[in-house]
Design a binder for these strands. Structure first.
Lengths: 206, 206
DNA sequence: ACAATCCATTGATTTGAATCAATAAATAAC
DNA sequence: GTTATTTATTGATTCAAATCAATGGATTGT
């Protein structure tokens, strides 16, 4: 019961130095627990995203669908924040699908609750600012990666930084996250493992 | 003199409902007027961006340099906000160059002044949040455009939404903003004007 | 007004990745 | 455990855009 709010509470306390138990319980009242089963959709294009969610456990993913082609923008795993933030902020329809890759539990703050907090709970504006800033930094890094790095470089980075993701997500979704076709990612992988093999048997260096 | 702060004052008052003259003059004290001449650089990779600026007049542009190739991320014109926001927020070195395309005057808020405002001026946190949110929405739209639209679609959109920019900026910079080479943009343009000519002379329709 | 430089256009060629296609491997369903 | 379905690999072909190259036009500086 209170268990479900344990992680999200820790999360908010870390961002919110002046948060006390009174304010927290005021805030916690408005939180909503949501469960989703693998294979379902959380959000579709045209719908307005109405909450910011903390993921207790599970894995979801957002993607554009362009000419029948999926373009994955992000994976969201446990202990992080999920939202279609652009839609949430602008109150305009999402362009993204969000589907559930593993059974997932989230703690939602809906738009009205957040506005209520901004008006009534001290220092909540600061949390809103910090969250917006963090999400900006993340989006900016993703943007830089798409513009500056090759799909192969991006794949290697994902391998290093999110090795668990590679195991939990089908390869064709990783491909669409990297901005290439499944065939292309397969070839990237074989190129990499070929290079690694050559390094071991030492055909060219020295 | 006070003239220089006229536009930025209007800008902040529009975001900041409770802003009064006292708080404004407290804030204005810390603003810095900066002038830049065409052809100079405001920021280079490795430098940390230390301010958020309101552009009184002028035009600047930010770009990545990858393998000797410029990739323009944004143009910033008068009456809007300029920053390398990612660097500013994270206090980490910029990956971008920012150069001055037209003589420019900016009103800077530096990082420390902003932190001071957050601590001491009521409701300034809200302005920080709103700015962060607006910048997120803009970046997100740019991202969606790069992922979902063709260079040609992006060009047509720029033509419609920022026709003045096309006139003020060399075509090869527009090309790098669209994510193509100058040659490719030239061909896009000739394709478009050919199509328009065909529509007028009516070779195929009806 | 002139030269010099920068920029835009156009054509020919190359290239990297998408598409098409077939097979193999892995996973899910029964 | 077997079949069916989905996913991954590999090869052949196609395609769109980058590169290379040359010319013409525009802008800048003196």
């Amino acid at each position: 019961m209170g268990d479900k709010f344990e992680k999200v509470k820790t999360f908010y306390f870390s961002l919110w130095p002046s948060l006390n138990e009174d304010n927290w319980s005021e805030f916690e009242k408005r939180l909503i627990v949501k469960k989703y089963e693998k294979g379902n959709y959380i959000l579709r294009p045209g719908e307005v995203c109405n909450c910011i969610s903390f993921i207790n456990y599970g894995l979801v993913r957002s993607y554009y669908l362009v000419d029948g082609r999926e373009i994955t923008t992000n994976f969201f795993v446990e202990d992080s924040v999920f939202s279609n933030y652009q839609s949430f902020l602008s109150r305009t329809p999402s362009l993204l699908y969000t589907d559930v890759l593993e059974d997932t539990e989230m703690i939602d703050v809906d738009y009205d609750s957040l506005q209520y907090a901004y008006e009534n709970i001290p220092d909540s504006e600061r949390v809103g600012r910090l969250v917006a800033e963090q999400l900006y930094i993340l989006l900016s890094a993703r943007n830089a990666s798409l513009l500056m790095e090759s799909p192969e470089q991006r794949y290697i980075k994902v391998l290093q930084e999110k090795p668990d993701l590679i195991r939990r997500v089908p390869q064709y979704m990783v491909a669409s996250y990297l901005g290439v076709t499944p065939e292309a990612l397969s070839r990237i992988r074989s190129r990499i493992s070929k290079r690694n093999a050559e390094l071991l048997t030492d055909t060219s260096s020295r």
